[in-house]
Write a protein that binds this DNA or RNA. Structure first.
Lengths: 211, 211
DNA sequence: ATCAAGTCTGAAACTTGTTCTACATTATCC
DNA sequence: GGATAATGTAGAACAAGTTTCAGACTTGAT
């Protein structure tokens, strides 16, 4: 439990009342529910509103677009996953192995709800500038998960952060190719393990070579 | 010019007549034109049809959805880029350096038409299963470009292909983060260079270490 | 030249994300 | 408790992707 992670939760601009918090929660739940059924397309704003017992206008007040909604849903799910993963840290000896294990574990979790994963990931990559802050939060959460898995003793170097970003890139993109049926899970595993080698490459005082 | 690349062009199911080929071309041109202006949102099917001098129904016969259209547009642009890049191969000594240089060159080309890039990349990552074949073609084209840049003397090993896939993942995902304003070009450069190290790592008879 | 099959056109219809409006409910402040 | 501003509701309206259809035009074979 080294390298403390500073609260990656939402910035929480205006404090919400209890009823509002409950509405928000109902909406996110409805969103995840519908997404689990039929993926991105099945999350229809009117249906979400109805399932959450909320007027369409209200839904849009809470989440200004479908993409915002789904990205928030992803935040939510990632939050869960992060706490779950923390309970059982990966077992590998090397940081690279631990990260690969963690990611594959996350991957298998997503596999259990492929439609939900589809909806969230599609929203994430489809998001335009207006969703940047939210997407950024997701990105920070992912980074936190990976750094956690690395179990560093010191704060990460700039190089290591770059490696983590590359791992994230690979993770997202591999997820997409899997979701759209263009890559098998075995393939994803290979690629994840491949990219995790960058961790060894960037851990200080390890590689004997250097230009 | 080693490691011959087998024609990555379209499979061309039914041979098109001349007028049809012309229509297809007009459509793609209109699509790119509109995309250059306002990105993904500006490519409106009715407008594309009008600009191409074609009925809406015809547009849909040629490209069954907006995403199909934009992915085809990307194929087209990549085709261009590939031939352009081949004219001036990258200059670096090491394969990794050559690949990084090539990708950054491609990156700068996209920078010149950021809106077009936005439209194409968003379509690509938003594509669902129904567009898999087309997305796959784009992927093979990208792979071809990277393998070309590596300038291998032998056919690539399985490990190298995995590294190339990871590079592609990084390339796409980095592109997205840049397009949505969440990463600077400098950052993209760093990450591309980072991931290209995997090439050294996987070139046979190079790395002195091995578990 | 003619017929049949396939293709293209123009226009309307349908779907779903998003916006808007008029009114009801709730929260806050005095 | 009552004024008032913010929030929520119901439902219409709008925008853009997609589908549909009747009729006109091409094409290819005979």
């Amino acid at each position: 439990m080294t390298a403390e992670v500073k609260a990656v939760t939402t910035p929480a601009s205006p404090p919400l009342t209890e009823r509002q918090e409950a509405r928000r929660r109902r909406i996110l739940h409805a969103s995840a529910q519908l997404a689990s059924r039929g993926g991105f397309d099945a999350v229809q704003m009117r249906e979400v509103a109805e399932a959450a017992g909320v007027a369409l206008g209200t839904l849009y007040r809470y989440f200004p677009s479908k993409v915002h909604l789904l990205v928030a849903t992803m935040q939510d799910q990632l939050q869960h996953m992060h706490t779950t993963l923390r309970k059982r840290p990966p077992a590998g000896d090397e940081p690279a192995a631990r990260v690969a294990e963690t990611l594959m574990r996350a991957f298998r979790a997503l596999q259990r709800e492929p439609q939900l994963a589809d909806a969230m990931v599609r929203a994430l990559t489809f998001a335009d500038r207006s969703v940047s802050p939210e997407v950024d939060t997701v990105s920070r959460l992912t980074t936190a998960i990976i750094l956690d898995a690395m179990g560093l003793e010191h704060p990460p170097t700039a190089e290591q952060l770059s490696a983590v970003r590359v791992i994230e890139h690979t993770w997202h993109s591999a997820l997409i190719t899997w979701l759209s049926g263009r890559a098998s899970i075995a393939q994803v595993k290979i690629d994840i393990e491949m990219v995790c080698r960058l961790i060894d490459l960037t851990s200080p005082g390890k590689s004997p070579e250097k230009s």
